[in-house]
């Protein structure tokens, strides 16, 4: 058991090293970091003319939307690209022969590869989150400075109890928006969704003949996954009214495609709505179960694959 775990870790570390030494993925990551960092510049385009607190609200919300959007988008791009290359590259370079001729099970090879992708995504999401936090911090400082300048236009405003309370309220509002612990919830959900997407890509790559096929199919499933909720509702409520083909298609989507739309509660969090932690844990639990099924099927398929 321990030796099996050590082999999985060895393969995972190698996959991770390969990914971080890959120029394409490094460039993508740098681009993502720059983009997240630049969100503070783009946020300055928020509609002027609003009241001070409103303008700052808009800018902070923009940085949050932009940052989380970039983490989701670039995380998916890096994850899918890296996962899609895992097996075809091993087969093309024949390195898979050197690994599987050692005392390594195919399941260990596959789990090791997936572990490497999880490590890669952990690093990427951590770095992007740090850039996101830096952007938010900068925006917070800008917001406080802006409030200072607005209130400073009134002479001796600090002596005015009403204005001072207003100021303290505005600054507290800025701090509350930036240091919102629910952002951790949002990042965690984004990360879970990325891992799930990579699990899908890994399953496809076990029978795919090329990386392109894996990338295109994963993207299709990713898109359909966002409509799964609608399909399931339709199937459950109108299943009897549709013809056989429609029913089969919608039923297939409902049963086998993951419900990625459920992760749009990240938007709710970013909009400032309260999403209870148990809801987040439910979603993570759903993702874990789905991943276990995905990886189990991937192992069975890969076991039968001729290499």
């Amino acid at each position: 058991m321990i030796s099996s775990l050590l082999r999985i870790i060895a393969i995972g570390r190698n996959t991770f090293t390969e990914a971080i030494r890959s120029k394409v993925l490094s460039v993508l990551l740098i681009f993502a970091l720059v983009l997240v960092g630049c969100s503070v510049l783009v946020s300055q385009l928020a509609t002027p003319g609003l009241d001070p607190a409103g303008l700052i609200d808009e800018q902070i919300k923009f940085v949050k939307d932009f940052g989380c959007g970039a983490i989701g988008l670039f995380g998916a791009a890096i994850g899918i690209l890296a996962t899609a290359q895992l097996i075809p590259q091993e087969l093309h370079n024949r390195t898979i022969y050197t690994i599987l001729s050692k005392p390594v099970r195919r399941s260990e090879f596959l789990l090791g590869k997936f572990f490497g992708i999880v490590l890669l995504l952990t690093l990427c999401v951590t770095l992007m989150t740090l850039a996101f936090a830096a952007a938010l911090y900068w925006q917070e400082q800008q917001g406080v400075a802006y409030a200072d300048s607005i209130y400073g236009q009134t002479k001796n405003w600090q002596a005015d109890q009403g204005l001072l309370e207003h100021y303290n309220h505005d600054v507290a509002e800025i701090h509350a928006q930036v240091r919102d612990p629910r952002l951790v919830e949002a990042i965690l959900l984004l990360f879970t969704k990325l891992i799930m997407t990579c699990g899908i890509a890994l399953l496809i790559s076990t029978f795919a003949s090329s990386s392109i096929f894996t990338i295109v199919t994963t993207l299709m499933i990713y898109l359909i996954g966002h409509m799964e909720g609608t399909a399931r509702t339709f199937w459950l409520s109108h299943g009897a009214e549709t013809n056989l083909w429609q029913s089969c298609l919608v039923g297939f989507i409902s049963l086998f495609i993951p419900d990625l739309n459920a992760f749009t509660i990240v938007d709710e969090i970013l909009a400032g709505n309260n999403v209870p932690w148990h809801h987040t844990f439910d979603l993570i639990g759903y993702a874990v179960v789905y991943l276990v099924v995905l990886l189990s099927v991937a192992i069975v398929v890969f076991d039968y694959r001729e290499i």
Partner: peptide, 24 residues
């Protein structure tokens, strides 16, 4: 294997270390 490529991003020592760990 015939015409092996191995992992081109690893150096000689890293390559042997990786395969060694796979063999316990």
């Amino acid at each position: 294997p015939e015409n092996p490529y191995f992992y081109s991003f690893l150096n000689g020592d890293e390559t042997l270390r990786f395969y060694g760990r796979l063999c316990g």
